[in-house]
Design a protein around this nucleic acid. Structure first.
Lengths: 255, 255
DNA sequence: TCACACAAGATTGTCAACAATCTCGTTCAC
DNA sequence: GTGAACGAGATTGTTGACAATCTTGTGTGA
């Protein structure tokens, strides 16, 4: 399984699936060969456990780029690939549809939902105000230990930029946002943000890999940390919003 | 079907269900007798149509108070009451669970999810920032016709307060927020707000029925309209946030 | 009287089988 | 060569039947 989303595959099928089968050209992109098989001689997983396994596998595939926007997700194939029942795959697809990650068309099957740049911008605008809320609440509530943890993440981010390690920086970015949400102790915002994050993970990855992006976002992240450390909720909110506005600008430039 | 949520019924069962059946006391609150039967001699509804019917019926029941927080939702009973298959009810409950309206406990069934005042406050905080975003965008984008429509709703709200009609005011309140969202043209925020609204409909209803509440919220609503009409996005955002902060204050007072 | 075991009934969870729908290749008519 | 009709295969949608789990009442023993 590759470690990153790969662009340009939405229209492609895996090599062997692209070939004719019995004179019938298979033209849809199928899930099959890109996905990690999880059977490995084990008995087929059933019911809820099977559904959770399928959800986890699909989430991982979405994150890694093994499945791409627009790709068909065929129940029977996924069932075989993941070693679960078709009912489990179906239930998993229904749940992922409710999360906005998959779209199911009646009688025509499921696909990875395409999120346009426009939608990614709209999502990021919502994240902007929600992350702002969380940063403000974190500034009100942060304990000394929590501030120390934030500052430590900030230092690690600084080091990752200096060492030219974008993947590490990206992981620290996620950790910082998670920490702010934890300190904020605003579960509803946290859930909404998790939900929105799942929908734009590809766009975020592409941004994170852009040359110079880490140099732009580092001071933005540090400003958030500093405002929270000062218990200045207005400044924290504004710093978080400024950071997300910067993300929106960068997103628009990818169009 | 009654027209408003009724408090205090969470622990009660309908009269006939409270009686023993074959020496076995039924202690859970069952869905049965409070719900509007939709069979009326018609053939049982199947599949997706059945699921949508069940969803619609459950939504209506949640809105009207025919089912209350904590109430058991028994698949077989609902299926009979709504005239749909058990599979349709099940699918409906899964979807409503994904929306945060229902909770399903493995092997123990589904219940109307309880939303505490604390959670309602957290939800309203998120609404505050999202409604603020929508008001700001509406201020940027509103056409003259749209402004006219907003002003008209404001006048009708003024009249509803003067005439002592809280139900009408409540409906206009909903219409105003819908209109702002439409003008804002921010679909992600709109969807999140719809989602959050479903979760706090009971709390909102109780607030709306409080003496004096309409007198407090009317000027808040009018301030939102005025700021949008002036195309002042900062003022619009702040007016929307101030209004929702006022709602939060009122929610906290219900504790 | 209390605690435990057990059985019956209620309810949820699961799925194989079948029906329904769609897609696509082939054939035929013009 | 083009468009329409048709059939085969692929896939989705649905559900009755049965298994699994939970709840509650009853009986028994200490």
């Amino acid at each position: 399984m590759s470690s990153a989303p790969r662009d340009g595959e939405a229209g492609g099928a895996g090599q062997y699936l692209a070939e004719s089968v019995g004179g019938r050209q298979i033209r849809e992109t199928h899930a099959g060969p890109h996905l990690q098989e999880s059977r490995l001689g084990r008995q087929q997983q059933e019911g809820e456990a099977g559904k959770q396994a399928a959800i986890a596998a699909l989430r991982a595939a979405l994150l890694s780029g093994d499945v791409v926007p627009g790709q068909r997700l065929v129940e029977a194939e996924l069932a075989e690939t993941f070693g679960v029942t078709r009912a489990s795959v179906r239930a998993a697809l229904i749940d992922l549809t409710a999360e906005g990650l998959v779209e199911r068309i009646p009688n025509r099957g499921a696909r990875v939902r395409v999120v346009t740049v426009d939608e990614a911008v709209a999502i990021t605008e919502c994240r902007m105000v929600l992350e702002g809320l969380c940063a403000a609440k974190a500034a009100e509530k942060a304990t000394d230990d929590q501030i120390e943890a934030l500052v430590e993440v900030g230092e690690q981010m600084r080091a990752a930029v200096a060492d030219g390690e974008p993947m590490k920086y990206s992981a620290l970015n996620r950790e910082l946002h998670r920490l702010v949400r934890e300190i904020a102790d605003q579960p509803v915002a946290g859930e909404l943000l998790e939900r929105l994050h799942g929908q734009i993970v590809r766009h975020q990855f592409r941004l994170a890999m852009r040359d110079g992006r880490t140099h732009v976002s580092l001071p933005e992240h540090l400003a958030i940390i500093e405002a929270i450390a000062r218990h200045d909720s207005d400044a924290a909110e504004e710093a978080a919003r400024a950071h997300l506005r910067s993300v929106i600008t960068a997103l628009r430039e990818t169009e």
